[in-house]
Structure formats: C-alpha cells, structure tokens
Design a protein around this nucleic acid. Structure first.
Length: 665
DNA sequence: ATTAGGG
DNA sequence: CCCTAAT
C-alpha cells in the first residue's frame, strides 16, 4: 500500500502529448536490410527505383504542369509527354482501340515488370493488328514510329529520348542524385539489364497512355482494363512493344477504384523514419504487421536478380508435382515456354486457366498474381534511397512475409485444406471457371485478403484483360501452388483497391476467421482484385515499415522516470512503466530502460556534449545518485542472495526530499 | 512477457 | 530506437 502510494507521484499529472500511438509491438525491422545485403532483393530495388521515379514525376507534375523548367526528372514520361504528347497519346489510344477491336488485348502495365511479353513480333495477332490498323494510324505511326511488331519503331528522337532517359535513370540509381537525367540523349549505353528496362518502361508508357494526371495510383503499379499498354523491352530491336496480345478481346472494364490503400510514410531526413504527421495509422498498421510478419521469415524472399537469367526454375514441391516459375516474370517467355501453356490463346488473358484432364488431374495455370497497389507518400525531402526502401518494404510486406494462396470457389473461400478438388466442385471443367485464387499474407493475426485473381468473377477463364500481364506461374499441377511461386512473382502488377482505411479488410479477415466454415464468403468487390497490405491487428497502428517515431522525453517525463527509478530501482522497468508511465502508451518499459541508460550517460558527459532538450542538472544528479545506489544494491543482492526487492533508495540529498515526503504520506 | 545489453 | 538473447 505504502509503496503504491509512494509511487503515486509526479508523472500522473503528465499529459501525454496527443500523439497517435505506436504500439511497441510494432517493431519490426526491415527484413530487406539483410536480404539486400546479400543482393537478394535486387528486384525490389528496381521496383523501388520505379517508385522513386514516380515520386519525382509526381512532384514535378504537382508543383506545376512541369512542362517548363528542367523537370527532366519527371521520368522518361516527361520527355515523351512534352515531345510527343500530341502524337503519342492519340496514337496510343487509337491503337488501343484498334487492338481491342481486333480481339487482341494489349496490355502492359507497370507490371510489365513482370510482364511476359507473350506477343511475339511474329504473332499472328500482331500481324493482324498491324494490317488492320488504319492508315491514319499508320501515318501517325510514321511520326511516332510503327506500332508493329518490330513493334514500335519510334522515331529516332523518340528513341533517343527514351534511351537517354532510361540510361539516365539507371545512372541515377547508381548516383542516387536527382541529377538523374544525366543527359537524356547522352550516351546510349546499351541497356544491359532487362530487368530494369522492363520495370521502368512500362510504367512510363503506361502512365503516358493513361494520361493520368496522378502519377501515382494510376500510373504506377497496376492497372486494369483495356488500356493499351506497351511494354518496353530491351529486345535489341524493339524499344516498345505490345506486351501482351491476346486473341481474346473482351473489353475489360476497369473497375472503379474507390480508394487506394495508402501507405503513408514520412521520412525524416535523419532517421528515415515516418513522421508522426502521417495519416497515422492508415497503413501504418499494415506495415508493422507485415514487417513483423516477414521479419520472421527472412529467408523467404530470395529474389535474386542476379539469377534472373534463369528464367525457369523447376522445383519439386513435396511430392505432389512440380512447379515452374519464371523468375519474377521478367521474361517475356515465361508463358510461351511453359510446358502446360497449351491453352488456347483465347484464354491467355485470364488469370487462371484450368482444365481437367483425363486422369482427373486438374491442370491450370495462373497467369499472374498482382501485388496490391501501393500508394506512397513521402516528404519531398525524403531521399531516393529512403523511398526505395519504403517501396521495398511495402512490397516485401506483401510478399516477403510469405503469402498463402487461398482458393475461391464460386466466390467463397475454401478454408479446408483437406478438401479435395472434387469435393470442392473443381473436378469439372465447368466449375473450374468459378475457381479463383487469392493471396493471403501470412500474417499472424487476421490475414487481410489479397485477391489476385478476380474475386468477384473468380478468375473466370473468359475474362480477358483480367490479370494476364504476367504469367508468372505456371503450375503443372494444382496442388503445387505455394509460396515460392509467389515469391518469384515479384514483378507483378501491384494492385490494391484498398481504401484509405485499413478497416474493411481487417474486418473482413476477422469475419473469415471461423475455421469451421469450409467456405467463407469473399468480400464482394465489384472492383478488381485487390490486395491489401497485410495488417496485423497487433501491430496495426505502428508505422509501417519504419521504426517508431521518435519521441524525445520531455523534462517532465524524465523527472517521472527518475523518481520511479529512485523508488523501484533499475531492474524493474515493467514496474516503472506501470507506476509512472502507465498512461503513456508510447513509452514501453524498454523505452524507459533505454532512456534511463541514456540519462545515465548524459549525466556523465559534459553539458556541452549533451544534445536535445536540456535536462536539468538536478535531475541528472538524481540519475547518477539513483544509478549508483541501485547498482550498489544490485551488487549486494549478488552476495546476499535473497534480498527483498522491496529495498528502497534511501537518500539524504535534497534531491530526494520529495521522495521522502511521498514516502511519509 | 521481461530484462539486459549491444547496436 | 531497434534487436537479441536469456530468462
């Protein structure tokens, strides 16, 4: 009782500044750090780079229409935009419509990254298209280049621009300066790295074509629909090319994106931390969740760009079958080369094609998985590097933590893994049309749903544009699906409809929790598949990928801490927390312990060396005194083992006067 | 979940 | 602040 009372001092009056809480549990680290070190996450770097570009573009366009000025930073697009806007855009549109009418689906998208260029120059489809293109278009094409197989023979200038920009971009990555553009037209280095090209170009073109003002949501990671998308390849000859042309042409209606999941991050120059201003928890939670998540599975992502030359990897998964995956889907051949790809071109665009073979085996291929769209917001002062990391982490959050594949049958999730396909009604080809897949973050808590296919339509085979971009994974055998597949999909489309609030998803996940249900309803999303950044309830509020926001201790806090330690000693941080900072949720006992550590250090150094808000010397003196006292006490306990932990610091100095007073009370 | 320490 | 290891 007495003790309790005595503890009831000072800090109670302390008002925690209004700050969004950042749960301690939210600490996780950047798994990438390590991975990156090993050069395993190169692919992400690329992605991040892209994001960096987008950011720049965003900034420049935001500040002004950036037509003037030296906004070359704005990405290759900027160049294209300025130079060819009048021509390119219309042309693109035209071509798009043409293609569509031709029953061909052209698509690219950022995902082009992963895109597989399934269309060959020789593709019949292309030839058709080419042939059917209106003369008019062709005309323009002359200006702009031929939109044909050799696909686009852009005018030299155009190409140069592109070339130069890309190169510049690349250099930028290396130099990391905004001097990005090097000289656009400058050296035409050969674009050696296909990956980079793939990643960068699509975005460029895509955004261009879409003519979206906002570089982010729309132009960036993913997009559905009939948009004409051009992929960019370092195909030696082709600078631009139609990524994918499917002989099927159902116009795909791009779903309305109600909102985008926002991953908000504010980076502080110094710590690369999220600033507290961010829309707090919006995504923060997700981050942490994710982070935490994959933190525990560091070995997951092993995207090794260096190895991407190996287009296919065949793995034995268990003993059920083999899986073939393309390394990140960067190869345009991932599809065509896949053994089972025998599907008719008609179905190429569907996210998944299935068929039942005689021996009752269900075979299918999943064209691609998408990564949720990421909305990233960082201060203009953030460094490119930090942005990269942000993006990387966001992506990793989605894939790095491991992803489970969920199976949807007729819109319902099949939760019972032990069910057979037959039992699930997937033994008939007809039924296969209702099969869909979702990617679920391996989050510990309620896993958000990441829909890869089309949740609402269940990956209907006849659905064109759906997800076709990049056939990332071809699975010869159904059962073979699993995480590793996803991992190799990195380059995929990123798409997320997620609302700003992470709630819907969470709620959903929670609802889906009942394992007793074999089938659980999948959220009705009239829109496209959406992926949600995994959010773990536990870590929900914390800052996504970053470390907690820094919150320097105020003098009053320090005082409360000192007093508590005087009372409790230095080895009972939990009690200190409970007694003196119980209402300060952002202060964990570890924080208090750390703070004490620094206080002791601070007290020992000269005032000149101290930084931050000055702590009254008087408090520091108490710190030293308390530290000395408890250190000694601890030493004593070492010898005389069972000393009651109730010992209290007995001070005689004036500094402890208050303590005594309280004690008496 | 806490503690203790190193980074 | 973060991370780990050891309790």
């Amino acid at each position: 009782m007495v003790l309790k009372k005595r503890l009831d001092y000072g800090f109670n009056g302390f008002q925690v500044p209004f700050i969004p809480r950042a749960p301690r549990s939210a600490r996780r680290r950047d798994p990438f750090k390590k991975a990156a070190k090993n050069g395993q996450a190169c692919a992400f770097e690329l992605l991040a780079s892209l994001a960096g570009k987008l950011l720049q573009e965003s900034e420049s366009s935001a500040s002004s229409n950036a037509s003037e000025g030296n906004h070359q930073t704005s990405f290759t697009l900027g160049v294209v935009e300025q130079e060819r806007q009048d021509v390119v855009k219309p042309l693109m549109t035209e071509v798009a419509s043409q293609i569509t009418s031709q029953k061909c689906h052209v698509q690219g998208e950022t995902e082009a990254i992963l895109e597989q260029t399934s269309v060959n120059n020789k593709s019949d489809c292309w030839e058709k298209i080419e042939a059917d293109l209106k003369p008019e278009i062709c005309k323009q094409g002359n200006k702009f280049g031929h939109f044909s197989s050799r696909l686009v023979e852009a005018p030299q200038e155009f190409r140069d621009s592109y070339d130069g920009n890309l190169n510049g971009f690349r250099r930028e990555q290396e130099a990391r300066s905004s001097g990005i553009e090097g000289s656009p037209l400058a050296n035409k280095c050969s674009l050696k790295d296909p990956l980079e090209l793939c990643i960068n170009s699509p975005a460029l073109i895509d955004s261009k074509i879409n003519g979206k003002g906002s570089p982010f949501p729309d132009a960036s990671f993913s997009r559905h629909g009939n948009d004409t998308k051009l992929g960019f390849r370092d195909d030696d000859e082709n600078f631009l090319r139609c990524n994918k042309v499917s002989t099927k042409s159902k116009p795909y209606r791009s779903p309305q994106r109600t909102a985008h999941r926002r991953i908000t991050k504010l980076l502080t120059s110094k710590y690369w931390k999220a600033s507290p201003k961010l829309k707090d928890c919006e995504l923060s939670g997700s981050d942490s969740g994710v982070k935490t998540h994959y933190r525990k599975r560091k070995t997951y992502y092993s995207f090794d760009r260096c190895q991407h030359s190996t287009l296919f990897k065949r793995k034995k998964l268990f003993d059920r079958g083999s899986i073939i995956t393309s390394d990140g889907g960067f190869s345009s051949e991932s599809v065509s080369n896949s053994p089972e790809k025998g599907m008719d071109g008609d179905h190429r665009s569907s996210s998944a094609n299935l068929r039942v073979s005689k021996d009752s085996h269900v075979k299918f291929s999943i064209k691609s998985f998408k990564i949720p769209e990421l909305y990233i917001e960082v201060p203009g002062t953030a460094t490119v590097g930090s942005l990269k990391r942000t993006v990387m982490e966001a992506v990793m959050a989605i894939l790095g933590g491991g992803v489970r594949v969920g199976v949807l049958v007729q819109g319902k999730k099949v939760r019972d893994d032990n069910r057979t396909l037959v039992q699930s009604g997937l033994s008939c080809k007809e039924n296969l049309d209702t099969l869909g897949f979702v990617l679920e973050p391996n989050s510990l808590q309620s896993p958000p749903v990441v829909c890869v296919g089309d949740p609402s339509s269940q990956c209907e085979t006849s659905q064109p544009a759906r997800t076709p971009r990049t056939p990332i994974l071809d699975s010869g055998i159904t059962d073979a699906l699993q995480d590793s597949c996803l991992l190799t999909n990195m380059g995929n489309t990123v798409e997320s409809n997620h609302e700003s609030s992470s709630f819907p998803t969470d709620t959903l996940a929670d609802k889906l929790t009942p394992d007793s249900l074999a089938l659980v309803p999948v959220p009705a999303r009239s829109t496209e598949p959406l992926a949600v950044v995994p959010v773990s309830q536990k870590t929900r509020r914390s800052e996504l990928v970053q470390r907690r926001t820094r919150r320097p201790f105020s003098v009053s806090e320090v005082e409360a801490l000192v007093q508590a330690v005087e009372e409790l000693g230095t080895g009972r941080w939990r009690d200190v927390k409970l007694c003196a900072f119980e209402n300060a949720d952002h202060r964990t006992y570890v924080d208090l312990k750390d703070k004490w550590k620094t206080l002791v250090h601070t007290a020992r150094i000269s005032p000149q060396q101290r930084r931050g808000e000055p702590v009254p010397q008087q408090l520091l003196d108490r710190v030293l005194a308390a530290h000395a006292f408890w250190s000694q006490h601890q030493a004593k306990q070492q010898h005389g083992k069972h000393q009651p932990a109730s010992a209290t610091m007995k001070l005689t100095g004036g500094a402890s006067a208050e303590t005594h007073r309280v004690e008496i009370v």
